[in-house]
Write a protein that binds this DNA or RNA. Structure first.
Length: 313
DNA sequence: GGGCCCG
DNA sequence: CGGGCCCAACGCTCC
DNA sequence: GGAGCG
């Protein structure tokens, strides 16, 4: 099927004009662009493709050379979903890949625009990546996952992020923050490739988590069992390990409201922030107005000074 | 969303 | 030919 | 050893 058949001039709705102007790769067959992927706000598959095309320049650097796991919902967020992390045998040649450890499957690399749009066109809504590239076995960043029990307790994530930011500033570490697109916040500390092992980053994240838990035991917990968390914010330090994954910056989420994992500026982390503030419909405009909060991420990564961090652990 | 297997 | 099924998977902790 | 958790 061609990109946008229009045998009939009445097909030129505003949405259709936007799709024609979206500059989607022409080596992919697009179909069912009006399918409702997010029924509640009435966002379509076409809306997803337009968003992914426009966000791709900002998102691709955070996927590069990392084994990709997608969550696919080809019938939309209210229908069945499944994970995919192995290259399917029907994948086109422009998708880069590497063998897994056992040599039994190929892991997917999303290193170009065509790959990103190909997966979007196949109903891939969420893009998850590990903390390492396929070139190494050490993490490229340290991440704190601040996960409140529900969106009504989002202020706990704002509080925790503020406290962690203070501690990181004290250690002269440059950090970045994003909305998870679901309930919480995630803090990134990029580090030079090969500069720390997972064992070392684990000591650090546990030390920070433990400090918060000690200071505010009514607000924060590192308790793994849900029944023991009692509406406290869970600081998930276990999540940061080899082969664990995290939602990529700018990825859409499989939520009712079409939210995205939105990078923010630190001064936006306050009580006016809402966890579902940014969606596939308003995320690009915000970027065009304010710029990418992670624009300096890879420069900072190379220059990050770990002296104080090492003294701390 | 698409391939595959089974009837 | 059509319907149903698959599409990840790993370790840690608790009981 | 199996379930709950990410």
């Amino acid at each position: 099927m061609e990109l946008l058949p229009h045998d009939d001039a009445t097909n030129y709705t505003a949405d259709r004009v936007q799709l024609e102007q979206a500059m989607l790769p022409d080596d992919i067959d697009y179909a069912k662009l009006d399918k409702l992927y997010w029924p509640k706000p009435a966002y379509t598959k076409g809306d997803l493709l337009v968003y992914m095309r426009e966000i791709a320049p900002y998102m691709l650097p955070f996927l590069k050379n990392r084994a990709l796991t997608v969550i696919r919902c080809p019938e939309g967020v209210e229908e069945a979903s499944f994970f995919q992390k192995h290259l399917p045998n029907y994948a086109p040649d422009f998708i880069e890949h590497v063998p897994n450890e056992a040599g039994t499957e190929n892991l997917i690399l999303c290193n170009n625009l065509e790959t990103l749009i190909w997966f979007s066109n196949h109903g891939a809504l969420e893009y998850h990546v590990p903390f390492q590239t396929v070139a190494t076995s050490t993490p490229e960043e340290i991440v704190f996952d601040l996960d409140p029990p529900d969106r009504n307790h989002f202020s706990l994530a704002v509080f925790a992020a503020t406290l962690i930011k203070q501690m990181l500033d004290g250690l002269k570490l440059q950090s970045f923050v994003k909305l998870s697109g679901n309930k919480g916040l995630q803090i990134y500390i990029p580090i030079p490739t090969g500069s720390m092992t997972y064992d070392e980053t684990a000591v650090f994240t546990q030390a920070i988590a433990w400090t918060l838990e000690q200071q505010y035991p009514d607000s924060f917990t590192t308790e793994r069992l849900k029944k023991n968390r009692n509406n406290r914010l869970y600081i998930d330090y276990v999540q940061h390990g080899k082969d664990k994954t995290i939602i990529a910056p700018y990825s859409p989420r499989r939520t009712d409201d079409g939210t995205i994992a939105m990078p923010l500026f630190w001064d936006e982390i306050n009580d006016t922030l809402h966890p579902a503030q940014f969606t596939i419909k308003n995320g690009v405009k915000r970027m065009q107005e304010l710029g990418c909060p992670f624009a300096t991420y890879h420069q900072v990564k190379e220059k990050q000074i770990l002296t104080n961090l090492r003294a701390f652990i």
